[in-house]
């Protein structure tokens, strides 16, 4: 089908945002388990969560360009019982609100205040809820695609796993970049975040590879025979019924050559996974911070290409009805 740029940006940007928040939370768990003394912890987590929130906001902003009546989007929660899109619409603002509260609770050191009067560390509670919602949002985003059974390339649990792993990979990479921006907490947590970025990039690579090889073996569920109910081996469309353009032709055909698709696939595999791994490894061994920075930029570019390919590779059964003009 034809990839929509608004959705490409929405899914990659919120993926980074959620991944980064989870990365910072895990770093905090790591710090408290290992007893690391962090001098500017509240600053670090506060600014870091705010940074994650910015990516979420940018994603939300991009999503509006996908809708032709964004003003009516306010009613998009109504089908939450059955529509994963509805569930995402509910979860995304929820994540953003709780993430903002969590960022502020660090930034303004609300934890001290609440701890004193209630005995509950508010930052842990808020960031714990945010992490939970982030994971739910990953599932909702992935399920939007995985639940459309007509796109057989998407209708697999791998879609959800890929969304989760690629979000975590880019989120950890961004968190590793963030840890190298001069925070003293960053010095203590930088290595933890960087190695996790490496781990999740490799995991995402593996699961993407798995999904790609699965899709190569895919047999279409529908055929010309079932599409028009004529059971003959040779069926050819003479005309789709119109010579002009139509929605069905624009939405479900990407119009690129197989060679373009092949090269985009090679490019995104290199940019999303191979190059970031090399850059992160070299950056950490030789302590070259620009390498770590560029790992994130390269990975983001790669993930945008990956998302483009994800949409373009998907073939819809309706295409059987639109094969010839005249």
């Amino acid at each position: 089908m034809r990839p929509a740029f608004s959705v490409i940006f929405l899914t990659t940007l919120i993926g980074v945002g959620q991944g980064m928040f989870i990365a910072l939370f895990s770093a905090r768990v790591f710090a408290s388990l290992t007893g690391l003394e962090l001098l500017d912890a509240n600053w670090f987590y506060g600014v870091g969560s705010g940074c994650a929130l910015l990516f979420m906001g940018a994603g939300l902003f991009a999503s509006f360009f996908h809708l032709t009546h964004p003003g009516r989007g306010i009613y998009a929660w109504r089908r939450w019982r059955s529509s994963w899109l509805s569930r995402e619409v509910i979860l995304l603002p929820m994540v953003m609100v709780v993430m903002a509260l969590s960022a502020m609770s660090h930034f303004f050191a609300w934890d001290q205040f609440f701890l004193k009067y209630s005995g509950v560390d508010l930052t842990w509670v808020l960031s714990g809820i945010t992490v939970l919602l982030c994971i739910l949002l990953f599932i909702a985003t992935g399920m939007i695609y995985a639940s459309v059974r007509f796109f057989q390339e998407w209708a697999t649990p791998l879609t959800v796993i890929n969304y989760l792993l690629m979000g975590l990979a880019s989120g950890y990479t961004l968190a590793a970049v963030f840890a190298h921006t001069g925070f003293s907490s960053g010095y203590s947590l930088g290595e933890f975040l960087l190695y996790n970025a490496l781990l999740f990039t490799v995991l995402a690579w593996a699961s993407k590879f798995w999904a790609l090889s699965r899709n190569r073996r895919l047999q279409p569920n529908s055929s010309m025979q079932s599409a028009i109910g004529v059971h003959h081996g040779t069926i050819r469309q003479l005309t789709r019924g119109f010579t002009a353009s139509s929605f069905n032709v624009r939405e479900f055909f990407h119009g690129r050559t197989p060679a373009t698709l092949f090269w985009i696939q090679r490019l995104f595999l290199t940019f999303s996974f191979i190059l970031p791994v090399i850059l992160l490894l070299v950056g950490s061994w030789l302590n070259l911070i620009p390498f770590i920075y560029s790992a994130f930029v390269v990975q983001m570019l790669g993930l945008l290409l990956e998302r483009w390919y994800f949409f373009a590779q998907a073939r819809h059964p309706q295409n059987l009805y639109y094969q010839n003009v005249a």
Partner: peptide
Amino acid sequence: DKCIGCKYCSWSCPYGAREF
């Protein structure tokens, strides 16, 4: 009057019966 134009329904129709 309720459609937001997300086109998700057209993805979920195997027959291509919906047109934007």
